[in-house]
């Protein structure tokens, strides 16, 4: 049983990474066909950094990801604290609202937002509404639940006496939030923010429906690229993004491991005392 499971696990990891390896290998090939490796070259990376158009798309994606993550993290953390202090019916109603974008397929979320933006556009008699702002609104909307679902468990784990102690010792509620609560729920905020950032950076389906030709992001334009024979510098870009995301995830992991072991040490100390 256990041996069979291990074999399956190894095969699955290969299965998950073979296409990624194919793309990374192709980024060093002088040919244009993904399936055939010609000669080793770095020129795809040189071409990538000369392509101002592509770099602009990367910049657009980064702007949307940073802004939507910032707004979603602040709004979402506030919301998590608010929801946490709610009870009964209201709480489950708000959580139901949070679950809508999580259970709805991306295509429906994208279509529904696109229809609403188009509707608003005709009401306001605007030529084009789809662009930067609609994209930003959509990204904030699908990022918010990730922040909330990451922060809520941290609030639940927090010792309520900590806030009470801070208030007893003369902190104002705002001060106690910044000195105590924020510190305690920080790992949840960080992982929520990182998750939002990667989701937003990689989102294609929703962005595809809610943006116009005025403001394109990288995944949306990659879709247009893949309709024609694709230029290999995109494989170079893919490989670089793989490295960036890998670094981000390792950082997240180290942070979580540290906060985990700090907690364990604290608990061990408490038990000893």
């Amino acid at each position: 049983m256990r041996k069979a499971s291990k074999v399956v696990t190894v095969i699955v990891f290969l299965f998950l990474y073979v296409p990624i390896i194919v793309l990374m290998v192709a980024s060093f090939s002088s040919g244009t066909d993904l399936a055939i490796f010609k000669e080793f070259t770095f020129s795809r990376y040189a071409e990538l950094f000369k392509d101002t158009n592509l770099l602009l798309l990367v910049r657009n994606s980064a702007i949307i990801a940073v802004l939507s993550t910032a707004v979603a993290t602040i709004l979402g953390t506030m919301a998590a604290m608010g929801i946490y202090s709610m009870k009964g019916r209201i709480r489950s109603l708000v959580m139901g609202l949070t679950n809508i974008p999580m259970t709805n397929p991306d295509i429906v979320t994208g279509v529904s937002l696109a229809l609403m933006f188009a509707f608003t556009g005709t009401v306001l008699r605007l030529q084009t509404v789809l662009g930067f702002w609609t994209l930003l609104i959509a990204h904030i909307t699908f990022n918010l639940p990730y922040v909330i679902l990451n922060v809520m468990p941290r609030l639940a784990q927090m010792d309520p006496n900590l806030t009470n102690a801070a208030l007893d010792l003369g902190c104002t509620p705002i001060k106690s939030f910044f000195k105590v609560t924020l510190h305690e729920i920080m790992p949840g905020i960080i992982s929520g923010a990182l998750m939002s950032f990667t989701m937003s950076l990689d989102d294609f389906v929703i962005s595809y429906f809610v943006t116009g030709s005025g403001f394109l992001t990288l995944p949306v334009e990659i879709y247009n690229y893949t309709k024609k024979p694709i230029h290999p510098k995109l494989y170079a870009l893919f490989s670089l993004m793989f490295i960036v995301i890998l670094i981000l995830m390792v950082t997240m992991n180290v942070l979580q491991a540290r906060s985990g072991s700090a907690k364990r040490r604290l608990r061990a100390g408490k038990e000893a005392a």
């Binding site: 998950l16 990474y17 073979v18 296409p19 990624i20 194919v22 793309l23 993904l34 990667t198 950076l201 990689d202 294609f204 990288l218 995944p219 990659i222 879709y223 893949t226 694709i230 995109l234 494989y235 893919f238 993004m241 793989f242 995301i245 890998l246 995830m249």
Partner: peptide, 13 residues
């Protein structure tokens, strides 16, 4: 990790 990479390009692979 693969979830965060462009699914369009991975499908193309």
């Amino acid at each position: 990790l693969p979830m965060c990479m462009s699914f369009l390009l991975r499908t193309l692979a």
